[in-house]
Structure formats: structure tokens, C-alpha cells
Amino acid sequence: GVQDLIIELAVMVLSAAIGLSTLWSMAGSNGQDPKAIGYKFKPAGENVLWGLGGFIASLPLVAAMSLLSNWAFRRIHTPEQPIIPMVSSGNAAVVALAFIVACVAAPIIEETFFRGTLYNAFRGKTGTWPSVLATSALFAAVHPLPGNFLPIFTLACILAILRERTGSLLPGMVCHSVFNTSSLIIALL
């Protein structure tokens, strides 16, 4: 439990460090601002509100997509998100680490790369909607399939729309974190 989560956290942080150093060195040597991926957090209060609004807006859509997906894939087994059984084991250290991984590290790192670098790369080549759909499909595809595809794709579309609408990654980080936190709390109960 604890050891698995420490490894998972180390992998996330290390790969993020490699990606960010690539971004900073390449952008820097081309005279471009790496923070333009959406590292613009002010006005913080407004951005946090956008994130909370996005979370509330996502709830009925993600719930509807979960129901549809459960029905569509009722005959096909979808593996469980590996962090869920760890959390239900109840060990305090495991629960604390799981919250750090799912509610702090994952939102910051995944928003940076999926809605920051990847979304903006597509956005520079195609229009808004192809970028929203393509990056959300990839984001959903890296989660346990097939049952989670539709709900996570829907959440990712909302995260990408928040990035597009506000120009900041903070609303997506807040929405992503609140979503993961509520999922973990439900798993704990």
C-alpha cells in the first residue's frame, strides 16, 4: 500500500520534472514564455470559483455518462482504479498518501500536461473543439477502460473548456482536485 503510493508519487513527480524542464529549456532558448501554457493564476478567487462552478456543472453530466457507460459495457469488465481498494483498506498512512497523489499531485501535473502543453499544442494547429475532444479522448484513454471512458472524457472536456474560457490552468486544477477528493471520500465511505 504505502510503498506502491510512494512509487506512484515519485513516478508522477519525476516525469513531470522531465516534461517541465523540456518545456522551460526549449521555450527559453526560443525566446518564448513557458508560463503561457496557462500558469497565470490571478485573479485567484475568480479562478477558484470557475473551478468550483465547473465541478458542479460536471456532476450531472458525468453521472449521466456513468449510467450510460455502465449500461453499454455491462457485459465487459472494467478494472478498478487501483487507488480505490488501497483507500478502503483504511490504513491512515495509505489514506493520507492517496489524498496527496489523487487530490494534489495528479490535478497539478495532469492539468499542466493535458490542458497545458497538449491542449495548447492542438489549439495552435486546429480549432478549439477538435482540441477539446482530442485531448479529452487521450486523457480518458489512459484511465481504466472501457467503462470509465465516457465519464472521464466528459470531465476532461469540462476541464479543457475551463482552460479555454479563463486562460488559466487553476480552474481545471481546482475542479479536478474537488472531483478526485469527492470520489475518494465516497470510496472511503
Partner: peptide
């Protein structure tokens, strides 16, 4: 920022994540 730089940054993150997940 140019799409090429952004895509390379994403790929270096994504590929490292996959390699590290498999190796560690």
C-alpha cells in the same frame, strides 16, 4: 508558445511516465 515545443514537452512527460511506471 509554438505547438512543436508544447508537443515535445508533453511527449517527454508522457513517455517518461510510461517508462518509469514500467521500470520502477
Amino acid at each position: 508558445i509554438s505547438p512543436t515545443i508544447l508537443l515535445r514537452a508533453f511527449l517527454s512527460y508522457f513517455v517518461s511516465f510510461i517508462i518509469l511506471s514500467v521500470v520502477i
